[in-house]
Design a protein around this nucleic acid. Structure first.
Lengths: 314, 314
DNA sequence: CCAGAGTTTGAGCAAATGCCCAACCAGTGA
DNA sequence: TCACTGGTTGGGCATTTGCTCAAACTCTGG
């Protein structure tokens, strides 16, 4: 009781430790910390909510291993990661996150300095919360697309900042707004020196992590207010099947070019890249988009879940 | 339902996934897997018991950070890791294990091939269960002490085998029995070619993980039946304060030499080593032994818990 | 085919947990 | 000083979980 004043986060961590690692009941945690049981329960919940507690499974379920092998063969991938399916309705981004994080950590553990590129979106954001600090600090991370809406506000999923913060790595955010009002404005941005530098880094990236977005009412671009309904309709009319770091593609995985796409500014992932480009996506709604990206060979690695994998293979 | 026959372990992993990652209740898990709730609960428990589920905490409690810094300063260590204390009576080896495993993983992630040496004991054994597979497979692991009792039986805590199995690394077990009947027999063993090879590897080890044992009624050496009560008394009479991979030390951390110690065969950790030698130990009962090991500069890194750290600093 | 030992299964129950809600507390503006 | 607002605390209760125990089942040897 000689403790001066533990910060709230410290206390949550301690409660989480006692509960999850020590295996105490919340009653015991409460007694240990000298607080009420309810407070202990809240601290434990907070530790979880704040992402202090990480749970991972070691064992690879053989059915998933089979699917991984099948995906690699079928789509000529460098690697595939399939996690067991969660029942419909449960957040899919959440399911793939630990596997994706594990994959990323593998790259982070490399001794030679790497350039690691990130897209945005819920899947990547969830991955960011799951990575654990690793010591090697020689890598650089670069963002392929900003999260700045036309009105200057930033969307939730600021992947690169969270990553950089967590890993203490030098980072290069994409400065260009996701979408500008005119093509001229876009050209202006693209000509900026720092923007070109980031683009060049993205070009050289040793490994790239991207989300895959569907293009419909639920499209991330649309839901987060980056594009208007009219622009969404424009894209759909042009045969849009999916989107990958802002690049809109048709069902064959070719980038499409419309009035709207000319306003979107981000690094454009080239087809058939040698270096790993890992797509992280799962869920029925993304199926079409994922198929397009695979067909166009925009990604050569995939992290998804069991049911999506099965659907892709059909 | 087209699944042929998932292995029991697969099923446990799947249940664990749904429960821990998916956050479903056991009822929901049961429904998803098409089994009874009790079976679901057993599967989840099995996943945990089999070590399929790993829980770690991200946050460092500031009180622990302070203690780490104090330990490093006070005992001139290369590194110290302090985990929050669990209440008395809860298994201490279990508490330090995740932190120790994380540390080990750091070395495993190194790109250049390392030689990693291990002692034995509950603490190391617990660490082994906590390590997660990492990709780099170029290291070698070597055992500093065997777990073979004089009657030829092996004790529980076969650290190196578990490690090798989990990490798929080439391993060099210590062949010599922990203790022989006569000094002549011991000399015979030590002269063996493969034994010398292992000793040489141990000498070169880039990093060494050891447990620290107390010497009293509860001494691991005694409890696991490696030494007799008479031998225990012999050691105590000679001023034994602790034991480190079979080497018995006095309160100043100097190796003591008695009839009994001459029968014990293991690699002897030299004092003041440059390369990291990390001791993993916690608990009041080990305090004296830990102080001795620190005084004798036999270890230059420490993983322990909060209350032990505090006690050491007094 | 049967008897017996060992294992697995699900019902029932007590303990543990999550959550709602009313009471309380600190800070703010009148 | 007092009323008000936003946030925190602990009581109470429904749900969930761990565990025990007896029944069922399997494997083996006669």
């Amino acid at each position: 009781m000689a403790e001066p004043d533990p910060t709230p986060q410290d206390e949550a961590a301690r409660a989480g430790w006692l509960y999850y690692v020590g295996g105490l009941t919340q009653d015991q945690v409460a007694a240990e910390l000298g607080v009420s049981r309810q407070r202990a329960q809240r601290l434990v919940a907070k530790a979880m909510a704040d992402g202090l507690v990480h749970v991972r499974l070691e064992h690879k379920i053989s059915a998933c291993l089979d699917l991984e092998a099948a995906l690699v063969r079928r789509f000529d991938l460098q690697l595939a990661r399939v996690v067991p399916a969660l029942p419909e309705g449960v957040d899919t981004a959440h399911a793939t996150a630990p596997a994706a994080a594990q994959l990323l950590e593998r790259y982070l553990a490399e001794a030679e300095p790497l350039i690691i590129a990130f897209g945005t979106g819920r899947a990547l954001s969830a991955m960011a919360s799951e990575v654990m600090r690793t010591p090697h600090a020689q890598h650089r991370i670069v963002s392929l697309i900003s999260n700045i809406a036309p009105d200057g506000s930033a969307s939730f999923y600021d992947v690169i900042m969270r990553m950089a913060d967590k890993l203490q790595l030098p980072h290069y955010p994409m400065l260009v707004p996701v979408i500008t009002d005119t093509a001229a404005e876009r050209a202006l941005f693209n000509a900026l020196r720092p923007v070109q530098a980031v683009m060049q880094l993205a070009e050289q990236a040793d490994v790239t992590f991207v989300g895959i977005g569907q293009i419909n009412e639920e499209a991330p671009l649309f839901k987060d207010g980056f594009i208007t309904r009219a622009q969404l309709d424009d894209l759909l009319a042009a045969g849009a099947a999916g989107e990958i770091v802002g690049g809109v593609i048709d069902a064959e995985g070719r980038y499409i070019d419309t009035e709207t796409t000319r306003l979107i500014g981000s690094f454009r992932i080239p087809a058939g890249r040698e270096k790993p480009v890992i797509g992280i996506a799962a869920g029925k709604s993304k199926l079409q988009a994922m198929q397009a990206a695979l067909k166009g060979r925009l990604i050569n690695g995939l992290v998804t879940d069991e049911s999506t994998a099965r659907a892709l293979l059909d």
